[in-house]
Computed example of a mutant assay.
Amino acid sequence: MVDVELRELRLFLVLAEELHFGRTAERLGLTTSRTSQSLRALERKLGGRPLFDRTSRVVTLTAAGRALHDELAPVVTGLDNTLARAQTRATGPGLIRLGVLNAASGTLVLNKAVTLFEAQYEGASVRLIATPLNDRLGPLRRREVDLLVTRLPLDQPDIAIGPLLSQDEPRVLMVATDHLLAGRRDVSVEDFADYPVRRPSDVPELAEVSCPTHTPSGRPIVPFDLQVNDISELLLLIAQGRLIHPTVAPFAEHFRHPGIAIVPVRDLPPSSTALAWLKGQEHPARDTFVATVEQVLVRPT
């Protein structure tokens, strides 16, 4: 019988997902050297064949590594599901980590659901975790959060979409108060082509709805050429007149800034938000919280 530890198998699966020793080490709370040592130990225990091809820049699975991954991943997922169910039966739902980019949409539903969830189940709690502006799905895929509040549309094969938290939220444009568009009653997507625009790139289907690549007449909409790292930086750049920012009314109102005007966009569809989670993983506590959200939606008062 091969004497392999579960932590070694988990490390292998994370590395197969990340294909990067540094990111794998960060996710697991290890040093990069410790990650390499653990992988070498696993390879020795399994007969010495390499599971990864490693160069200074690229990490890829070997044929043996791919075969192990395909057989091992569902086994470890099944074990995790069994342990999660056992823990829920013993201690209640426990902690739910809920990822939010901002608190602009769905707040009323979420606040009621959190209050009800924590009141109904002993030991249950919800922790809100801010997600990055440029990597909105990353925390979910890295399992840093259990649920994510996301704008729609979202069409990703590994992500399930749950109950709607908000619907029919109008689109607006955030511009500097002295901008040429600031005094308009409303604007069109056609106006976007005349100015640098922050266009999110991490979720293409969402980006195309919130800020298309071309105007209705076919003119290209040129994206702002620098990365914007957080919301505070975004607001400063808008107020300075360096870019314009298509968004939704709740976001603009929540982050209202004295140097920024909010102008309705007349030809973009309204927006909705929903809960999302990774497919293929049982998570009783997550499912219990989702059911609580659905309960609030059925009985909003």
Results as ranks from 00 to 15, higher is better:
S38D: 09
Y121E: 03
D202Q: 10
K45N: 13
D267Q: 00
Q37T: 13
V100K: 09
T215C: 00
L275K: 12
V126A: 09
L268G: 06
D80V: 01
L128Y: 11
P170M: 09
V203P: 06
L72Q: 08
I161G: 12
A73I: 14
E17I: 13
F117V: 07
P300A: 05
L235I: 05
M1R: 11
V100R: 11
A25G: 13
I221K: 01
A182H: 02
D178H: 07
L133I: 11
E282I: 07
E233M: 07
V4D: 10
R34A: 14
K45V: 13
V149Q: 08
E71D: 14
P139M: 00
L268W: 04
D186Y: 00
R242S: 02
V58H: 04
I161E: 13
W277K: 15
L79Q: 03
L83P: 08
P196H: 07
R198W: 01
P212W: 00
V209C: 07
P264F: 00
F224V: 04
H257D: 14
A86C: 00
P153E: 02
D146F: 00
T273N: 09
A176P: 12
R256A: 14
R299E: 09
Q87H: 01
L148W: 03
N229G: 05
E17Q: 12
R141F: 06
R85L: 14
V222C: 02
L297V: 02
P220E: 04
E43Q: 05
V296H: 01
A274C: 14
T301Y: 00
V172E: 03
S166L: 08
A41S: 13
G241D: 00
L72R: 11
V75C: 13
L237W: 01
G183A: 08
S272R: 10
Y121F: 06
V4P: 05
R151G: 15
P157E: 01
D267S: 07
T273I: 05
D194S: 15
W277M: 14
A160K: 10
L268Q: 04
E26Q: 13
E208T: 08
V126H: 06
G162E: 13
T131M: 06
R141P: 09
R23C: 03
L128T: 04
Q167A: 15
S188T: 10
E294I: 04
V109S: 07
S33Y: 03
E122F: 00
S36V: 15
L128P: 05
G92D: 05
P196T: 02
A84C: 04
R34D: 10
P216S: 04
D70E: 10
L51I: 05
E208K: 08
I260V: 08
E118V: 08
E5F: 12
R54I: 15
Q167R: 12
D168V: 09
L180I: 10
N81G: 13
I244Y: 01
K279N: 12
D70P: 15
A130R: 09
I231G: 04
L11D: 00
A249L: 13
L83V: 11
L152G: 12
Q37F: 03
D191P: 15
L39P: 11
V75I: 15
P139Y: 00
S188E: 06
L243C: 01
